Amino acid sequence: MTPAISDISLQIPVGAKVALLGPNGAGKSTLLHHLNGLKLPQNGSVSIMGVPLNKKSAKAIRQKVGLVFQDPDDQVISGTVWEDVQFGPRNLGLSEEEIEEVCNVALGSVGMLEFKSRAPYQLSYGQKKRVAIAGILAMKPDIVILDEPMSYLDPQGQDEVAALLQGLSFMGKTVLLSTHDVDFAVSWADMIILMKDGQLLASGGPELLTDEEWIRKSNLHLPRIARLFRMVPNLNVENLPKNEQEAARLLHKLINVQQIKL
């Protein structure tokens, strides 16, 4: 039997913003499920905050690591938003006062407090994504994992989720997500993990996504800004820009150099 993932060895720093990229079938979701304890390693080992993952520790690790599924309809299943978000804290044995507090804070942090009496079917897809994130935040995890959080969202929904992810980082959470969106990953993440065929190709800073060799090996494409600079004839740029700010600085530098030559 071919293993779903193998030959992966990496460490994720506390408080990091991590983007996991690779083609379909690369093993991204399988890796995320191992980090949450949803799946247990058959070989090798997984440690979360120094605690080895096994059958005995899986429940405790799931309290430290919250996993948001790709499809919120797999996660938001209770009769109302409030019932859904309070499910986790109630299972932790919190008092009614504590449940009230953590759920209000969680829903408020994702901008869904006013919708707490709504049924999930009355929400948009993006709103259900935010409720799913609130359900995880109510558990007060140290690590938040999201499987394709931008999928099937319109541009406004993507902007809202991006703001939420930035907010999680400001809260001191370690945030790890899988995505196909290289433009978002290169501008948001401070650590990139590239996978293909169930194996780790590379890990490092966001500059990996402007490295044309790694992009080719990962079956990805360069971010739009980097592609734009590559399309300009006779423009030999060693380090392609990763975002608008870097592009603006590089253009300013190139214009000044051209003026000097003139």
Rank of each mutant, 00 (worst) to 15 (best):
G111Q: 06
G111I: 11
M112G: 05
M112P: 03
E114K: 14
K116W: 00
K116D: 00
K116N: 06
S117D: 14
S117R: 14
R118G: 01
R118N: 04
P120M: 10
P120H: 05
Y121K: 15
Y121Q: 15
Y121V: 14
Q122D: 12
Q122L: 13
Q122K: 14
Q122E: 14
L123Y: 02
S124R: 13
G126H: 08
G126E: 08
Q127K: 13
Q127N: 09
Q127S: 08
K128I: 14
K128A: 13
K128D: 07
R130D: 01
R130P: 03
V131L: 09
V131N: 03
A132Q: 11
A132Y: 05
A132D: 09
A134G: 01
A134C: 04
G135Q: 10
G135S: 11
G135V: 05
I136M: 07
I136Q: 03
I136E: 07
L137E: 03
L137S: 09
L137A: 12
A138R: 02
A138F: 06
A138E: 06
A138G: 12
M139R: 05
M139I: 10
K140T: 07
K140L: 13
P141T: 07
P141K: 10
D142Y: 01
D142E: 15
I143L: 02
I143P: 01
V144Y: 00
V144H: 01
V144K: 02
D147K: 10
E148Y: 00
E148C: 06
E148M: 04
P149T: 04
P149N: 08
P149I: 02
M150H: 06
M150N: 02
S151G: 02
S151E: 15
S151P: 00
Y152T: 06
Y152C: 11
Y152D: 13
L153A: 10
L153R: 09
